[in-house]
């Protein structure tokens, strides 16, 4: 579930830049979370669960990845980012890793 969520966030962030993020890019971003030290990995997963919970409220019960428009996904990401420093760092981390991947692979 967390992987699906990270994939969706990564693809929405890239879409905002008119870039198509391949599944391999999202896999890379998720692998970075998996490679984190346990306490940071758990922290990231807690934030991801919070993201999912809030997105369900925002989407009237729909999970984030089922939103019917990328615009709506992006607006929610920006809202989540603005909540706390921790939520900002979570989105910033996914965005950074996505950008590293797409730039290294000349997808931007």
């Amino acid at each position: 579930m967390i992987k699906k969520l990270v994939t969706s966030i990564s693809q929405a962030i890239c879409y905002n830049q008119s870039i198509i993020c391949p599944d391999s890019g999202a896999d890379f971003v998720f692998s970075q979370i998996e490679n984190s030290p346990l306490h940071i990995k758990l922290g990231l997963k807690v934030v991801a669960v919070l993201f999912l919970f809030l997105s369900l409220l925002y989407g009237l019960g729909q999970p984030f990845w089922a939103y019917n428009s990328k615009y709506r996904q992006i607006v929610f990401i920006e809202f989540f980012e603005s909540l706390f420093k921790t939520t900002r760092m979570f989105v910033s981390f996914i965005r950074s890793m996505s950008l590293i991947y797409i730039c290294d692979n000349n997808l931007s």
């Binding site: 910033s92 965005r95 797409i102």
Partner: peptide, 14 residues
């Protein structure tokens, strides 16, 4: 690199 620039800008993407 462009990727590292992306990392820097990601801190405050908006």
């Amino acid at each position: 690199t462009k990727g590292f620039l992306g990392m820097f800008l990601s801190e405050d993407w908006k």
